[in-house]
């Protein structure tokens, strides 16, 4: 795929990719933007290659997920370094501005999602938010179809239960 074609694909998928990055970063907008920039660089520099096994969308989402994990690992290492205080590292929580602008309904949803295990949260996001099939979600999340299905069912049940509970 030519760089121009890739850039065009990225442009089209940008809002969805941002939503996915935001979900991977637990609502931390700055971390999501960082991850998205790093992912786009990987794609445009050819460090992440599209092999045609899945759709471009699924592939880009995988790159974003992998990049978020990579940045999270680096941030964890940086926290132990003596110079960590000089550069603020993301704490993996939703930032105040993002939470403030959310409507009540969506805020309840993000709060409930935040309490779920990461894999369940990822699969639910990919299926409900991104309208992917469970098979595609499994590809993005890097798990087997059976595992993705289990995360989907358990996550859905847990989310329903949490949303039914009265807000405090």
């Amino acid at each position: 795929m030519s760089p121009e074609a890739l850039e065009q694909e990225l442009d089209q998928l940008h809002p969805a990719a941002f939503g996915w990055a935001l979900a991977c970063c637990s609502g931390d907008r700055a971390a999501a933007e960082d991850a998205l920039q790093a992912s786009y660089l990987k794609v445009l520099d050819g460090r992440a290659r599209f092999d045609g096994r899945a759709s471009v969308r699924t592939w880009i989402f995988s790159v974003v997920r992998y990049t978020v994990a990579e940045l999270r690992r680096r941030a964890a290492v940086r926290r132990w370094l003596p110079l960590a205080a000089l550069g603020a590292t993301s704490d993996g929580r939703p930032d105040a501005v993002t939470e403030l602008v959310r409507a009540d309904g969506t805020r309840r949803l993000t709060e409930a999602l935040a309490t779920l295990p990461r894999r369940q949260r990822e699969v639910l996001h990919l299926v409900f938010y991104q309208d992917l099939t469970i098979a595609e979600a499994a590809l993005v999340a890097g798990v087997s179809l059976g595992t993705a299905r289990t995360h989907y069912e358990r996550g859905k049940a847990a989310l329903r239960k949490l949303l039914k509970e009265e807000p405090e």
Partner: peptide, 18 residues
């Protein structure tokens, strides 16, 4: 119902996306 809530979340994120 769940789908509707996620779609609302997506609409919010889309407007806030850089």
């Amino acid at each position: 119902d769940l789908g509707e809530q996620f779609r609302a979340l997506r609409r919010e994120d889309t407007t806030a996306a850089p």
